Amino acid sequence: MATADTMLQTALREPARRLTLDLRAVTFFDSAAIHAVVRVAERFPGTLAVLPSRQVRRVLEISGLASQDWFDPS
Rank of each mutant, 00 (worst) to 15 (best):
G46T: 06
Q55C: 11
E61N: 10
F44I: 00
L23P: 02
G64F: 08
T27R: 14
L60D: 03
E61T: 13
I34Y: 04
H35G: 15
E42G: 10
L23Q: 00
Q68S: 13
D30R: 02
R18M: 05
A33E: 09
G64W: 09
R18C: 09
L65P: 07
S67E: 15
H35Y: 12
F44M: 02
R54S: 14
S67Y: 09
A33Y: 01
E61W: 05
F29T: 04
V56K: 04
I34H: 06
I62E: 10
E61A: 14
T27L: 12
A36V: 03
A25E: 13
R24Y: 00
F28S: 13
A66I: 08
V50P: 01
Q68L: 08
T20R: 07
A66F: 09
L21P: 01
E61Q: 14
A16P: 02
T20D: 00
H35T: 15
T47Y: 02
A33H: 10
L65C: 05
A49V: 08
R24S: 12
R39F: 03
P15H: 11
R43L: 01
P15F: 06
R43W: 00
R43F: 00
V59D: 07
A36E: 04
T47Q: 00
D30V: 00
E42N: 10
S53C: 12
S63C: 14
L51G: 06
E42W: 00
P45W: 05
P45E: 05
A36I: 07
A33S: 15
V37L: 04
Q68V: 03
R57H: 15
A36S: 10
V37D: 01
L60Y: 08
V37Q: 01
Q55V: 15
A33M: 11
S31G: 04
V59N: 07
A33P: 07
D30G: 08
R39W: 03
H35K: 15
A16I: 02
D22F: 05
V38S: 03
A32H: 05
A33Q: 07
F29D: 06
V37N: 03
V40G: 00
T20L: 06
R17L: 14
I34R: 02
P45N: 05
A32C: 09
T20S: 05
I62Q: 12
G64C: 10
L23F: 03
R24L: 07
V59W: 09
V50A: 06
D30L: 03
R58N: 11
S67V: 15
L19P: 05
S67P: 09
L21Q: 04
L19E: 01
Q68T: 08
R43K: 10
D22N: 08
L60E: 07
L60M: 13
L65D: 02
L51A: 10
L65K: 06
L21C: 01
R17N: 14
V37M: 01
L60P: 06
R58F: 11
L51K: 11
L60V: 06
H35N: 15
L19V: 08
R57E: 15
V40T: 00
V40R: 00
D30E: 02
S31W: 04
R39C: 09
F44S: 05
E42D: 13
E61Y: 08
V59T: 15
A25F: 03
R39P: 03
L21E: 01
D30N: 08
V59A: 14
A41W: 04
E61K: 12
L19N: 02
